[in-house]
Design a protein around this nucleic acid. Structure first.
Lengths: 117, 117
DNA sequence: ACAATATTCTACCGAATGGTTGAATATATG
DNA sequence: CATATATTCAACCATTCGGTAGAATATTGT
């Protein structure tokens, strides 16, 4: 695993921590969408949507293609794949070694309970 | 896949969006540690660490076992597995880019009350 | 009983977030 | 040109966040 800091993960996880933005990603997964179209589908102001889009952009999850006065948004899944890989690594580790560790710890806790209650 | 709102994901993704908390999870993956031990490993006040621990607890990623005056923390990887599964689901869609994606998204848009109220 | 230890609770601070409104900018259309 | 459209920018507000310091609580050790 790559050690050290991975600052790009901060933005990605923070971006998808918001349910509105997760819903936006779902919409964008269907293809390119204008900002206005996106705004029409969410119960908030145009500017509110614009701000969320900017967060997704900053996280590298969305790119913008300006065509005249229209701004078309396209999903860029690569950072999400990175994030998934990071999680998968930990998940794999925990699925194997840690579950065994947890069993052991539970066992020891029971033992301690028996020995000194 | 489970659709609609998944509020537990909010807390999990928000929790792991912070590099300090990701590092704490890495430490906890090595086994149970006291809050104080954790505090000794991070360049911030005891109280700062205590707050981060509380965030991880609220996200369901850490449990606390109070033994006397010592609070032992244990990792609970289950919510991370949930989060990984959510990401893997989307990743799979993007890898394949099938028409099924479009159909599912249209269906979701119809069902989801939060989007287009 | 007393003092040290492990930890939380409360209160505060500055910065970031999620949201709003209103003005500005660029572009398309009559 | 004038006007409607698509969008951002700027300011503001309330809340949350990451962090600190100090007081309070519970437990252990002498």
């Amino acid at each position: 695993m790559r050690r050290g800091r991975q600052p790009e993960l901060d933005g990605v996880y923070a971006a998808i921590a918001d349910p509105t933005r997760r819903a936006m990603l779902a919409v964008l997964a269907g293809g390119e969408v204008k900002v206005g179209t996106l705004a029409g589908r969410f119960p908030m102001s145009f500017n509110g949507v614009s701000k969320h889009v900017k967060v997704l952009e900053r996280a590298g999850l969305v790119t913008r293609r300006v065509h005249g006065r229209e701004h078309w948004l396209r999903l860029k899944p690569a950072p999400l794949r990175e994030a998934a890989r990071w999680l998968a690594h930990y998940r794999g580790f925990w699925d194997t070694r840690l579950d065994a560790l947890e069993r052991l710890l539970v066992q020891r806790a029971k033992h301690d309970q028996r020995v000194r209650p």
